[in-house]
Amino acid sequence: DENEERIRAFALYKGIDPEKARELWERGEINKDDEEKAWREYK
């Protein structure tokens, strides 16, 4: 689903483990601007 892809995109963008990215996502600790930037680059 799209959230999974967004988490993966963010992990790649930040160079972090996707599981770590998922934890940040679930806790609401992902910066929305960074997340959008990562998503645009990923697509």
Rank of each mutant, 00 (worst) to 15 (best):
D1W: 13
E2N: 12
E2V: 13
E2Q: 12
E2D: 13
E2K: 09
E2S: 13
E2H: 11
E2Y: 14
N3G: 08
N3F: 15
E4Q: 07
E4P: 03
E4F: 09
E4H: 07
E4Y: 10
E4M: 10
E5W: 09
R6L: 10
R6T: 04
R6P: 00
I7C: 07
I7A: 01
I7F: 05
I7E: 00
I7S: 00
R8C: 15
R8Y: 14
A9H: 04
A9P: 00
A9N: 04
A9D: 02
F10A: 02
F10W: 12
F10M: 09
F10D: 01
F10N: 01
A11T: 01
A11K: 00
A11P: 01
A11N: 00
Y13Q: 03
Y13D: 02
Y13F: 12
Y13R: 02
Y13V: 03
Y13L: 06
Y13S: 04
K14L: 15
K14S: 10
K14I: 12
K14T: 12
G15W: 01
G15M: 05
G15R: 06
G15P: 00
G15H: 08
I16N: 00
I16P: 00
I16T: 01
I16Y: 04
I16C: 06
D17T: 15
D17V: 06
D17A: 13
D17M: 07
P18E: 14
P18H: 13
E19K: 11
E19N: 09
E19T: 09
E19R: 10
E19I: 12
K20W: 11
K20G: 05
K20M: 13
K20E: 14
A21G: 01
A21H: 00
R22I: 04
R22T: 02
R22M: 05
E23N: 06
E23G: 06
E23V: 10
L24M: 15
L24C: 09
L24N: 00
L24A: 06
W25L: 08
W25T: 00
W25C: 07
W25I: 09
W25R: 03
E26D: 11
E26M: 14
E26V: 12
E26Y: 13
R27D: 04
R27F: 04
G28P: 00
G28D: 04
G28Y: 03
G28I: 02
G28N: 07
G28T: 02
E29G: 07
E29C: 15
E29M: 13
E29H: 06
E29V: 07
I30P: 01
I30A: 03
I30L: 06
I30C: 05
N31P: 12
N31W: 06
N31H: 09
N31D: 14
N31Y: 05
K32F: 10
K32G: 08
K32M: 09
K32P: 14
D33H: 08
D33N: 08
D34W: 05
D34G: 02
D34F: 04
E35L: 15
E35M: 15
E35Q: 12
E35H: 05
E36C: 14
E36N: 06
E36P: 01
E36D: 10
E36Q: 07
E36L: 09
K37D: 09
K37R: 14
K37P: 03
K37L: 12
A38V: 04
A38M: 07
A38E: 02
W39Q: 04
W39K: 03
W39M: 07
W39A: 04
R40G: 06
R40L: 13
R40T: 11
E41T: 08
E41S: 10
E41M: 13
Y42F: 09
Y42R: 04
Y42N: 03
K43S: 11
